[in-house]
Every structure is written in structure tokens, then in C-alpha cells.
Amino acid sequence: MVTYTAPPARAAAARLWKPGPVLLRLTVLFLLLMFLFGVLLGHRLFNGAAIRSMAFQLPELAIFSLAMMVPLLSGGLDLSIIATANLSALAAAFVFTHFGVSGSDASVLLWHIAALVAAFGVAAMVGLLNGTVIAYLGVSPILATLGTMTMVKGIAVGLTHGGVIAGFPPFMVFIGNGSILGVPVVLLVFAVIAIPMGVLLTRTPFGQRVTMLGSNLQAVRYSGIDTRRVLVRVYLLSALLSAVAGLLMMARFNSANAAYGESYLLITILAAVLGGIDPAGGFGKVSGLVMSLIVLQLVSTAANLLNVSQFLSLALWGAILLGVAGIGRVWAWARLFLPARKPS
């Protein structure tokens, strides 16, 4: 008889985050929840309005989660995403409200471009600051981004005195609340970003470097890659994605403020980890993240339709993450008692 020594906890954790089973497990979870809520809600869940409202709500959190995912893959974290998003949105809002959005078509187009440049310019500055402090000064990502988060939000609060900037041109309103062929524009924006992000992170040298960085930073450096430059780009990308999410938020509410969406911050980490992204870095796919976001959105929409408080869905989100991890552990434990596969 073969004696089996239990694998160390670290190895078990790594197995938990293998990309394949995560997607499978989330799909099973999704189908189970669909069945459960389908029985409870019937046609109230499976109708156009409910699905459309899900499609409107999902993209903001989804893009924020993408912005969190990139640093997570590299073994870091970005706590400044929400603050960056708000400051970017405020920059765009400033351009929209201070300079005409009337006048000739050409000038209107020009100001829209100027607003975008302002938003992404601000985000790029924050991203570069984060990246430089983390890569070149060696500050741990949590602390560096905790500092920038506080400072960036402080700048936004200081400039606006905590107030709301509202009233944007019709195009922004259309982005936030319009649909093309019945598909919400925000969802299209998300698709346009998520698909290239998936390609970028798994099929390009940059993506490979990011995940390798998360697995073993020293080894990557010794293999001749400038890890610091990669890290700066990671946080730059994270900030730019945050700006997109900030602009979407601004378009949906038709206003911008220093403190919008703050409850998303820790949820994005939760969503990413549920989607199979190893918080220690190195493993994770956009597909897993999208699936986990769909599961979370389903829970929240069902809670809404069942007329229970949104806070219950917050609790359920946390419980789902813990539950999924727990099932993974029980499964790994159960396999110790199954006959070991013969080495081929």
C-alpha cells in the first residue's frame, strides 16, 4: 500500500486556482443558481427587462474588476482604482461643463475628444505614480496604492468640495443609458474591452510577462526581462481601465463625484478571486472573471426581484467565495481517499 503524505497547503491552494476547473465549477454554480432562482421567480427572472437591467448594471463592476485583475495577476493589488476612476470622470466632467458642448459639430467632437484626453491623462498620471513607487522604490502594492487612493480621492474632494458635477451632452447620456439593437451600449463597451484584454493577457509577450511576474519575480528578472518596466505598465493599464469604468459610471448617472462607487473596491477583489485569479499572482483568465461576475450579478438581480435588501446579496457574495473555496478544499481532501492514479 502506498502511504500518502498530504501536500502542503500551498500546493493545495495552487491546485484550487487551476484555470480549467474554476470555469467548470462556476458554470455548475451558475446553472444551479439559475435553477434555484428560476423555480423561485419563474418568468420574472427570464424576461427581457430583467436580463436587460442585468446587462446595464454589470459592466461598471466588470471593468473595475479587470482593472483589479491585471495587478493581481502580477502578484500585486491596486486599491486606487475607484479614486482614479472618479478623478478621471471629474476631469472629463470639468471639460464638458466649462467648455461649450454646443456650437458646430466639429467643435463638439473636439471637446468630446478633449474630455477623453483629460480623463485618460489624469488616469495615466496616477498609474505612472503607482507603478514608479511600486517598481522603483519597492513599496508593497497595497501600501503604495492605499496612499495614492487617499491622495487622489483627496484631490477630487478638495477640487469639488465633495460636490456633484452634472449635465453632460446627449452623447454621454446615450453611452450610459442607450442601446444598439437592444444591446446596452455599456455592455458593448465592456465587450470591446474584455476581449482584447483576454488576448493581451494570455496571447502576448506582455501578458506572459505579467503572469510570470506573479509566479516568480526574481526568476523573471534573472531571465533578462526589465521587471520594473513591466510593473509600471501593469499599474498604468490598471489606471486606464479605471478611467473607462469612471467614464461609464459618469455616463450612467449623468454626473460625477469624488465618492461614487466606493463600495465596488473590495468587491472587485472578491470577484477576481472567485473567478479563479490567484491573489498571490500568476494564474487567472478573463473568462473566469466574466463568469464570476455573471454569477454575482445573477445573485444581486435575484435578490432585487425577490424584494430582499441589496445587502443580503453583499453577504451572499462573500459567502459564495468562501463556499466555493470550501468545496474546493473538501474535494482536494476527498481525493486523498480515492485510489491514486497510476503513474504512466
Binding site: 513607487v133 513599496v139 496612499g147 487612493m149 487617499t150 491622495m151 480621492k153 483627496g154 474632494v157 478638495g158
Partner: peptide, 14 residues
């Protein structure tokens, strides 16, 4: 005040 707090945190951790 929040802005200053953030700047101090950033400088200190650096």
C-alpha cells in the same frame, strides 16, 4: 485634509 493624509502616507511608505 484627505489629500494631505494621502501624500503623507505615500511619502512615509516610500
Amino acid at each position: 485634509s484627505e489629500c494631505f493624509t494621502g501624500a503623507v502616507i505615500l511619502i512615509a511608505v516610500s
